[in-house]
Simulated scan of single mutants.
Amino acid sequence: MARKKPAVDKGFVMFDVVYQDGARTSNRKVPSADLGGLDGDDPARAFIEGQDRKIAEMSGNPRGPIKTITRSPGQ
């Protein structure tokens, strides 16, 4: 009989982001080390906004403001 391998912390948490213009992005990775503690998932917003700024600098297409951030289902 095969043994199950122990669960391994993947090191990141996936989030779905909805922007004020109605656009949606799914499965945005945020390091799990940045989350938790008293702030819960609040640091995810700052991390994703930072990702959006980097993407906007490279592409020249800025993203609108974030409306909501929720953890992706299935985690």
Score class of each variant (00 low, 15 high):
Glu49Cys: 03
Arg71Asp: 01
Ala7Glu: 08
Gln51Gly: 08
Gly50Pro: 05
Leu38Met: 14
Thr68Phe: 06
Val13Asn: 05
Lys10Pro: 13
Ile66Ala: 02
Pro65Ala: 15
Pro6Met: 10
Gly60Pro: 10
Pro31Asn: 12
Lys5Gly: 10
Thr68Gln: 14
Arg63Glu: 07
Arg28Thr: 08
Glu57Cys: 02
Arg45Ser: 06
Ala33Phe: 08
Lys54Asn: 11
Leu35Ile: 10
Ala46Ser: 15
Asp52Ile: 04
Ala56Gly: 09
Ala46Glu: 15
Lys5Tyr: 12
Gly60Asp: 13
Thr70Asp: 11
Lys10Thr: 14
Lys29Val: 07
Lys54His: 09
Glu57Tyr: 05
Met58Arg: 12
Leu38Ile: 14
Ser32Cys: 12
Phe15Asn: 01
Thr70Gln: 08
Tyr19Lys: 02
Phe15Gly: 00
Arg63Thr: 05
Pro31Glu: 12
Lys10His: 12
Gly40Lys: 07
Asp21Ala: 03
Thr68Val: 13
Pro43Gln: 05
Lys54Glu: 14
Lys10Val: 14
Gln20Tyr: 02
Lys5His: 13
Glu57Pro: 00
Pro31Ile: 11
Met14His: 07
Arg45Val: 13
Glu57His: 07
Lys54Asp: 14
Lys67Gln: 15
Leu35Pro: 02
Gln51Tyr: 08
Val18Leu: 13
Ser32Glu: 14
Ile69Trp: 03
Ile69Pro: 03
Ile66Met: 04
Gln51Glu: 15
Gly64Thr: 07
Met14Gly: 03
Arg45Gly: 02
Ser32Trp: 07
Gly36Asn: 09
Asp52Lys: 05
